[in-house]
Amino acid sequence: MLTAEAPLPAPVRAEILALAAREPHPRGAGVAALRLVQARFGWVSTAHLREVAGLLGMSADDLDGIATYFNLLFRRPVGRHVIMLCDSVSCWIMGRGPLCAHLCRTLGIKPGETTADNAITLLPTVCIGHCDHAPAMLVDDTLHGDVDTATLDRLIDTLRDTP
C-alpha cells in the first residue's frame, strides 16, 4: 500500500533525479517532480515534499512555496476522484451557480471538501477552455461539457462505484 509517509519508491526518486539532470538548475524540475509524486500518491505530503526538496537541492520551505503557489498541486489528501467545476464567466452565465449548489447538496460537502466515503473532492477551477459547452467541468483528467443536474447525478453514482 502507498502511504504518504514512507520514503519515495526508488523508481520515483530516480525519475525525479533524471528530471533534475536535464535542467540547467535542478529546481527547474520542481513542478514536474511534485506532479510526479502527486500522480502516484494523489497528493504531496510534507514527508514527500521534504524528500523531493532534498533531491533537488532546495530547502523544503522553498519548494513548499512552489507547491502552495500552484492550485493543481495538492498539499492535502483528496478523494479518489476530483471534480473541478469551472467558476469562470461563461460557465457562470450558463448556470454553474445552481449546478454547484446541486453538487454540494448531493454530496453533502462544500467546495474544497471531500465526501465522508473519500470518493469525491469538489474544487472550483478557473476557465478550462470549454466555454462553447458551458457549464463545463473536469472530472479527474476528463473534460465534460453541457453539464446539467441529470448528468451530474449519473456521474456521481458512477464515481462512487469506481475505485
Partner: peptide, 27 residues
C-alpha cells in the same frame, strides 16, 4: 522540444511569469 505541464495559475500566461515558473520559482 519538451513539454512542461504546468499546475495552474493564470499569471503563468504572462511571458515573464512563464519564464519564472519554468525556472522552478513562484510565477
Amino acid at each position: 522540444i519538451r513539454v512542461h505541464s504546468s499546475a495552474g495559475r493564470y499569471i503563468c500566461g504572462e511571458e515573464t511569469a512563464l519564464l519564472t515558473a519554468l525556472e522552478g520559482r513562484r510565477a
